[in-house]
Every structure is written in structure tokens, then in C-alpha cells.
């Protein structure tokens, strides 16, 4: 006689249910809880920030440069340290960098971190950058590379 037929159907069902719960539990722990923890960690990082997702703009006669970041911390009355995914965006270009000190009165910006300028057919990579004169002058510091496509 087949050994399988000797097993109690109820016990077998319970075993399958237990196995299903075990797999479900494993998947739940692996994905849902991990994501929750990551989100929690991220929100905890934001706790250290004075401003979450700060937004500014630099305006001059010819163009507007929008400034955005994930976090900002006040350095003094007029300067803010922008951190995580800092972006300066105008209709002609985007500058991506990190740890940028933005002066809210003079509307200037300075960074010593790796920076990337992207515009039509052009990219500039440098070790830091600076924006002065309402965005008219952009200074890329240190050893720099400009690629024209």
C-alpha cells in the first residue's frame, strides 16, 4: 500500500498551512519590515536637518535658477548648508552636487564636493563649484573636465 495514503488528511492539511504561514512570514519579514526600517532610518536622518526638502531660486534678468535639496541646515543667519541630492536647475543647465553652502541674501552658492554640470551637448565634472552674481558666473574648481558632444 502507498505510504501517502496512510497519512492523516487533517495532519497533512495542517502541515501545508504551517508551511504556507512560514513562507508568508519569511517574505513579510524580508520585504515589508526591511522597507519600513529603511524608511524609518531615512526619516531619522531628516531629524538632524533644520529644513526638509528646502527650495530656493536665484533670479536674474535673463533666467531663473531653481535650487533644491533633500535637507538643509542653518550655518548662520543667512547661510544654509544644503545636503543630499542638491540640484541647481535652469532652462539651460543642471548642476548636481552635495554639501553646498547657499547664501540666501547674496544668492550665492559654494561647494567643495564633486560637482556635475549638464547642459545641451555639454558636461563639466569638477571638484566643487561656486555661483555668484545672481547666477551669471559659475566657477568650477580644481581639476575639471569638460566634454562637448
Amino acid at each position: 500500500m502507498n505510504n501517502l495514503l496512510l497519512l492523516n488528511k487533517k495532519i497533512l492539511l495542517l502541515f501545508i498551512l504551517f508551511l504556507f504561514l512560514l513562507i508568508f512570514g519569511f517574505l513579510f519579514t524580508k520585504f515589508y519590515l526591511t522597507n519600513t526600517l529603511v524608511n524609518y532610518s531615512k526619516s531619522n536622518l531628516n531629524i538632524g536637518a533644520d529644513i526638509v526638502e528646502p527650495r530656493f531660486s536665484i533670479n536674474n534678468k535673463s533666467k531663473k535658477i531653481s535650487v533644491s535639496a533633500n535637507e538643509g541646515n542653518f550655518v548662520n543667519d543667512q547661510e544654509i548648508l544644503l545636503r543630499n541630492n542638491v540640484m541647481f536647475k535652469s532652462k539651460d543647465f543642471i548642476i548636481k552636487s552635495d554639501n553646498v553652502v547657499f547664501d540666501t541674501i547674496k544668492l550665492t552658492a559654494q561647494s567643495k564636493d564633486d560637482s556635475k554640470f549638464i547642459s545641451d551637448k555639454t558636461t563639466i565634472s569638477s571638484k566643487g563649484f561656486g555661483i555668484t552674481e545672481n547666477g551669471n558666473i559659475i566657477n568650477f574648481n580644481g581639476k575639471s573636465k569638460l566634454i562637448i558632444k
Binding site: 535673463s62 563639466i124 569638477s126 559659475i138 566657477n139 574648481n141 580644481g142 581639476k143 575639471s144 569638460l146
Partner: peptide, 11 residues
Amino acid sequence: ILTDDGIEVFQ
């Protein structure tokens, strides 16, 4: 284009 002391853009 490579430079040792940066690039200054006057828009």
C-alpha cells in the same frame, strides 16, 4: 577639455 585649475563660465 581638461584644466588644472577649473573653469569659469560667464553666462
